[in-house]
Design a protein around this nucleic acid. Structure first.
Length: 453
RNA sequence: GGCGACGUGGCGGAAUGGCUUACGCAGCGGCCUGCAAAGCCGUUUAUCCGAGUUCGAUUCUCGGCGUCGCCUCCA
C-alpha cells in the first residue's frame, strides 16, 4: 500500500484507489512553446518513477498527461517570429517527447491536447454559467470563486490573506472581474489570434479549464491522483479544483506535488559547463540516466540543485553499478532476494522514499560483491537479481558491457595472453590502447573485462 | 505585508527523543593486483545560534539569524 503526501490534507496518507487494481493519474503536462528545461525533466522523472513503481506492484496504471497547445505564450512567440502557431506547438511537442525518450520516461497512456477538447470546454463553461458560478465580461468569461466556499484549500491560505499582501502585482483583468481572484475560463479573441466559436463570442480557453475537462472525461469523477510541480499548486491546481467544485463534481482524491530544481549553478560553473538549464543540454553532455539517479537519491518533495558536481557524483555512482552488473553478468539467472524486495517496497510505500531505496541498492551491491569475493555465487546471483529488479522498476537499466565489438574483445584476449606470458610491456600497451578508446579495463584472474567508460 | 518550507560531515543527501548519526561522491590508509582498475575493510572535529521541556534533543517548544518558495507566467 503506497502512502503518499497529500497536498490538500498536508499529510501522508494511503493512496486510495477508486477501482481496485487500477490507478488513475492525471499529470499536468507542458505548454509547448519552448524547449524543455530541468524542471520539466524533474517532474516527468518523478512521476515516471511513481508510475513504474505502481506498475511494478501489480497495479494497472492509467496516466493521462496533457499537452497545452494553445496559450498566450504560444501566440506571442508565433507573432514575434511570424510563423503559424501550430508550427511551434508541433515542433516543441516533438522535441519534448524526444527528450523524454532519452530520459527513459515512458509515454503516458493518454496524451490529450487542449485544442482537441475546446468543444467540451465550451460546454463546461456553459454549464458553469448556468449554475451561476461563471459570468461574462467585456473580455471573456470568468469563474466566480464566490461559488467555491473552500477556495484556497491547496494554497493553504484564505483568499483575503492572499490579497492582503503581494501588492506589487497587477491583478489581471481587474476592471472586469467581480472579485480579484476570479480567473478566466474563456478569453475573447483579438485580431490575428487563433479562435474558436462560443455562445459568448469567439475566443480561446483559459489555461485552467483544459485539465478539468480532460481529466474528468478520460479518468472520470473522483479519480485517484492529480500531480504536477509545486509551482502548479496555486493557482493552476486550485483553479482546476475550483471549477470541479463549482460544477458539483468530485475531482482528484489525492494531490501530489514535486519540489523544485533550484540554484542552477553560479557563474563559476557556467564557464566550464555552459548553460545546463536546458534539459537538452544536460542530455547531450551526460549519461541520461544520471539525472534520474540524482533524483532517486533526493526525496521528490525536497528541492534539488542540479550542478556539475551533483551530476558527476551520479555518473560515478552509475559507473559503480555498471561495474557490478558487468562483474556479475555471468550470474544473471538468480531469483531476487525476497528480503531485499520487501525492504525496497517498504521504502517506496513510505511516500516514495527513493533515497532509502537507493541506499538499499548500494548495500545490496556491496553484499553481493562480498559474496562473490568469498566464492558464494548463489548468494551473489540472488542479490544481483534483486538489484536489477529494483533498479528496473525505477527505470534504471544497468550496462553490463555485453555490447562490446569483437575487435575490442580480441585486444582484451591478447592482453590476457600477454599477462599470462608475463609480457607486461605488451599488456600495458594493450590496456592503454583500450583505455584511450574510452573503455574501462578491469584485469583480473578470471580474465580481462572491458566496458564502456 | 500574508502564508509556508528549510538550515546535518569536504560535497550531495536521508533518518531519528537515547543503542555504532544511512547511502552516494570525493580524500586518506590497508588488503587484493606484475602495476593498475574493479572490489572489500577501515577512516576523516556533521546535526545554524540561544533558551526551554526531558533522565537524555540533531529530533519537541519558543526566540534569533540565514536561505528559499507561493501570494493569479511557471514542472
Amino acid at each position: 500500500m503506497l502512502n503518499l503526501y497529500d497536498t490538500a490534507t498536508k499529510s501522508v496518507k494511503p493512496l486510495a484507489l477508486r477501482d481496485p487494481g487500477k490507478v488513475s493519474i492525471y499529470l499536468c503536462g507542458p505548454t509547448v512553446y519552448g524547449p524543455p528545461h530541468l524542471g520539466h525533466g524533474r517532474a516527468t522523472l518523478v512521476y515516471d518513477i511513481l508510475r513504474r513503481y505502481l506498475s511494478y506492484t501489480g497495479l494497472q496504471v492509467r496516466l493521462v498527461s496533457n499537452i497545452t497547445d494553445i496559450d498566450d505564450k504560444i501566440i506571442d512567440r508565433a507573432n514575434n517570429e511570424g510563423r503559424p502557431w501550430q508550427d511551434i506547438t508541433t515542433k516543441c511537442e516533438n522535441v519534448w517527447f524526444e527528450a523524454m525518450g532519452k530520459l527513459g520516461v515512458l509515454r503516458p497512456t493518454d496524451v490529450p491536447h487542449a485544442t482537441e477538447y475546446v468543444d467540451q470546454m465550451v460546454a463546461m463553461i456553459g454549464n458553469l454559467i448556468a449554475r451561476d458560478a461563471a459570468y461574462v465580461t467585456g473580455d471573456g468569461v470568468y469563474l466566480s470563486i464566490a461559488a467555491v466556499p473552500d477556495y484556497g484549500l491547496l494554497a493553504h491560505q484564505n483568499v483575503d490573506d492572499m490579497l492582503s499582501g503581494g501588492g506589487d502585482r497587477e491583478v489581471f483583468g481587474a476592471d472586469n472581474k467581480r472579485h480579484p481572484a476570479d480567473f478566466a475560463l474563456w478569453k475573447f479573441t483579438k485580431p490575428g489570434e487563433p479562435s474558436w466559436p462560443s455562445p459568448w463570442g469567439d475566443g480561446r480557453p483559459g489555461w485552467h479549464s483544459e485539465c478539468v475537462v480532460m481529466s474528468l472525461e478520460l479518468l472520470g469523477e473522483g479519480f485517484d491522483l492529480h500531480c504536477g510541480g509545486a509551482d502548479l499548486r496555486f493557482p493552476h491546481h486550485e483553479n482546476e479544483r475550483a471549477q470541479s467544485v463549482a460544477l458539483g463534481k468530485s475531482f482528484a482524491n489525492h494531490w501530489m506535488h514535486n519540489g523544485f530544481v533550484v540554484d542552477l549553478e553560479g557563474e563559476k560553473m557556467s564557464k566550464s559547463l555552459g548553460n545546463v538549464l536546458n534539459l537538452l543540454d544536460l542530455l547531450d553532455k551526460y549519461d541520461p540516466r544520471a539525472y534520474r539517479m540524482l533524483l532517486l537519491q533526493t526525496h521528490y518533495r525536497s528541492p534539488v540543485r542540479v550542478g556539475q558536481d551533483n551530476i558527476d557524483a551520479s555518473v560515478s555512482a552509475l559507473a559503480g553499478l555498471d561495474a557490478f552488473a558487468a562483474r556479475t553478468a555471468g550470474h544473471a539467472t538468480g531469483v531476487a532476494d525476497a528480503d531485499v524486495v520487501q525492504k525496497f517496497m517498504a521504502a517506496m510505500d513510505n511516500d516514495l522514499d527513493t533515497p532509502a531505496a537507493m541506499a538499499l541498492v548500494f548495500d545490496t551491491v556491496r553484499r553481493a560483491n562480498t559474496a562473490l569475493d568469498a566464492g558464494d555465487v548463489d548468494t551473489a546471483a540472488s542479490l544481483r537479481a534483486s538489484v536489477v529488479e529494483v533498479l528496473g522498476s525505477l527505470g534504471i537499466e544497468l550496462s553490463s558491457g555485453d555490447d562490446i565489438g569483437s575487435d575490442i574483445l580480441e585486444k582484451a584476449a591478447a592482453l590476457d595472453a600477454a599477462r599470462s606470458a608475463k609480457d607486461f610491456a605488451v599488456a600495458d600497451a594493450l590496456r592503454n590502447e583500450l583505455q584511450s578508446l574510452g573503455y574501462v579495463v578491469e584485469t583480473s584472474k578470471e580474465g580481462t573485462r572491458v566496458r564502456r567508460g
